[in-house]
């Protein structure tokens, strides 16, 4: 009997639940028009300020960005990211930068900008690299000109030592090609001086060959009295012009 009673209680419970379910489900399907909200005042437009101090720094220095906002829910600064509605931050850009703050709030957006100028200091001296000596510099440091007596093209005794030193360097630098220019002083005749300059240049060439310098390295040219080093009519000047001038390279 008790079993029947329990069964009838369950039956009633199910029925109530079913009814309730029908009522709830049916109520959900039904479009319910909400009542118009009361006319609330519109949310205020956000306000934002942004400043940087100092406005100019040397590269590597720092400046402070300071900002404040009102009525904003989200505040971000380009290049920095989302920030508190108000605050300050130290920045150290490497180039001049314009910071833009964007404040978003229920009432809209607001922007504020501040420019920080970065003064570029003079570039630091390049790192001292190991000095690189070119063949041409070596040549001019080591190969010395030789000088002649008037109307002569044979090497003087004091020139032989110079030629030996020149030859020692040139034999150690066989990749260097060079030109021997024969020169004469202004006295005497143009054509004869060109021939004399040729003899002078070839005298040095012969001495260098004898000392073991390769013929491939040497070119000779005579300028006679056409390209003097010194233009005064004095013996000191003439001596400067009576020479074999050694020039790096071959034109």
């Amino acid at each position: 009997m008790e079993d029947q009673l329990n069964r009838s209680k369950l039956k009633w419970t199910l029925m109530v639940l079913a009814f309730a379910a029908i009522v709830v489900v049916g109520g959900c399907k039904k479009k319910e028009v909400p009542p118009a909200p009361p006319a609330a005042p519109p949310p205020p437009q956000p306000k934002a300020t942004l400043s940087v101090s100092p406005e100019s720094i040397d590269r590597g220095g720092a400046a402070t960005l300071t900002w404040s906002t009102q009525d904003a829910t989200t505040v971000s600064i380009e290049g920095i990211g989302t920030v508190q509605p108000g605050g300050s931050q130290s920045v150290s850009p490497t180039t001049s930068t314009t910071y833009r703050l964007t404040a978003q709030g229920p009432g809209g957006n607001a922007d504020a900008t501040a420019r920080l100028t970065v003064v570029q200091p003079p570039p630091p001296p390049p790192p001292a690299k190991a000095p690189e000596v070119t063949d041409e510099q070596l040549f001019s440091q080591n190969v010395k000109d030789i000088y002649f007596d008037y109307d002569r093209y044979d090497l003087r005794a004091d020139d032989q030592a110079v030629v030996d030193a020149d030859a020692a360097f040139l034999k150690a630098h066989t990749a260097i090609k060079f030109t021997i220019e024969g020169h004469c002083d202004e006295r005497g005749s143009t054509d004869y001086n060109l021939a004399l300059g040729d003899n002078r240049a070839n005298a040095a060439r012969a001495a260098l060959l004898k000392a073991g310098v390769s013929a491939d390295q040497i070119k000779v040219i005579s300028f006679g009295k056409e390209k003097p080093f010194c233009s005064e009519s004095t013996e000191a000047c003439w001596q400067q012009n009576r020479r074999d001038h050694f020039v790096f390279g071959q034109k």
Partner: peptide, 27 residues
């Protein structure tokens, strides 16, 4: 050996040439 320059022909015959030589020193 030495400078030999400035040849000119005998214009009458073209059989001789005068020139300048430094073979003994000064031209």
């Amino acid at each position: 050996h030495g400078p030999d320059v400035s040849p000119v022909w005998n214009p009458r015959t073209n059989a001789q040439i005068a020139w300048v030589s430094g073979r003994t020193g000064l031209p």
